[in-house]
Design a protein around this nucleic acid. Structure first.
Lengths: 265, 265
DNA sequence: CAGTGGTCTAGACCACTGG
DNA sequence: CAGTGGTCTAGACCACTGC
């Protein structure tokens, strides 16, 4: 047990300290959970960047003054949450939205026949990217004060020439200072990969609310469909480390040749 | 290592035997994976029924002649797949669709405001349950020959008096022999729980394809909505053990007061 | 209090990767 | 070949449950 450590290790994980809170719940936290938090902090602080390898399990065990098995369990959980990727014989790497074998990790829309690979990459077009005051609902979702500055992006995704997705995004202006339509247009690769490399913001997980809605004003033109055509409305809130909401995205999906795929278990 | 076992243990897990396949791939399989398969077979064979406790880790370790840690890792994975449920201090239990704190584990439709608990349980009405020959697409999805007998069930779910979901189900007739509208009507609890207790069929996972469609003939009447109203079309294939498809379900969801909720990571 | 799952360790060995 | 993650073991101890 690393409890008796006196040499300056790192941030000493101490079960006893954590347990010694105020009256309430004992708040017992296993060692590996504490290690997990420490690793998380290093990820968050940018000590290891997306795509890079983190130190080996043995190195981390020495650094945190615990056994390899304990580090292992911490990494196991982080890998299960898709924050880290293990590769036998090579190392453990920080997950990234770039250079993954799937183009868009959070996009669940697939072509009805054949697989996505036969379809080729989506064609993207940025319609606008402007700075504005946050509407009340967006501010609430992002944890901002109503009226705080946000960036709004509108874009279209097309598959094989057919415009299929119209999306509006809202991002807090502060962390994304300098984001322009030009930059979005010229970047090759997923938008979330650009966010990682340019702004150090990594999208970790997201929640989506899905509804069926009739097509109205701007969507009918942009997606070239008759008014009232049923569309899939996908409202996403994406979170970065520490469950901090960092993006609101509202998408309208045509589902005449594609479908939203979901796995339940 | 249990390789040298000569006393009749159970079904001796032998890495070497598995590796000794034909030329092709070496097909190395860790011990814990082999234990996992053995546990899976016991689940499948009904040795432990849904809701029951399986033997303790130590008992299983003795039975399979491996260490507790190896059994533990096998159970960990089965628990991660929602086939088993661990309860500290009590034991490990076979997962069940009955008596879970969520009413329908596979239903992702939630009320827009408030949580599902404030809404109360769904009211259910069976419209029909008939035996027929499988249409080609259903037969294909279920791995049957076209024309094989299937049961078709049509039902409506209503929330607070508002009919919201119209569902059609197809089940292979053989395993569900004796299923009637009467039985479905009188059963209290999720339909999947009835399938477990009455027919020994446990739904393990499912895939859903989601689209937006305009309401047409039967749905307009049953859900009491105008023709053309956008509805969420949810096509589900549910699988039992061994990835065997066992149910096709086509649902039409009203999403004016509810939404389909999904988590991405 | 006994029995269960949960944590932690230490050490041995295996499988995979790349130089 | 060395270095990495992956497997397996054995044993000690902890936390939770229910009798």
């Amino acid at each position: 047990m690393p409890i008796t450590s006196n040499a300056p290790a790192e941030t000493l994980p101490l079960t006893s300290e954590l347990s010694a809170g105020l009256g309430g719940t004992p708040a017992f936290s296993p060692l590996y959970q504490q290690i997990k938090v420490l690793i998380l902090q290093s990820l968050q602080g940018g000590e290891w960047k997306p795509g890079e390898a983190i130190p080996s399990e043995m190195d981390l065990a020495v650094r945190f003054r615990v056994s390899q098995g304990t580090v292992r369990k911490a990494i196991d959980e982080l890998a299960a949450e898709n924050l880290l990727v293990r590769r036998q014989g090579k190392g453990t790497f920080v997950a990234t939205h770039a250079a993954q074998h799937v183009q868009y990790r959070f996009l669940r829309l697939l072509p009805d026949s054949g697989d996505a690979s036969t379809e080729g990459p989506a064609e993207r077009r940025i319609i606008e990217c402007k700075r504005q005051r946050a509407p009340a609902d967006i501010a609430r979702a992002l944890g901002l004060r109503s009226g705080d500055a946000v960036l709004q992006v509108r874009r279209v995704l097309a598959f094989q020439g057919v415009p299929t997705i119209l999306e509006d995004l809202w991002l807090p202006a502060a962390p994304f200072k300098g984001l322009t339509a030009e930059r979005l247009d010229t970047y090759r690769g997923p938008m979330y990969a650009l966010f990682e490399t340019e702004f150090g913001v990594r999208m970790v997980r997201a929640e989506e609310k899905i509804r069926a809605l009739p097509a109205t004003a701007p969507a009918t033109d942009i997606l070239d469909i008759p008014e009232g055509t049923p569309l899939l409305s996908v409202e996403r809130i994406a979170y970065t480390y520490n469950d901090l909401p960092i993006e609101v995205r509202r998408g309208l999906y045509r589902t005449d040749t594609h479908h939203y795929q979901n796995s339940l278990s």
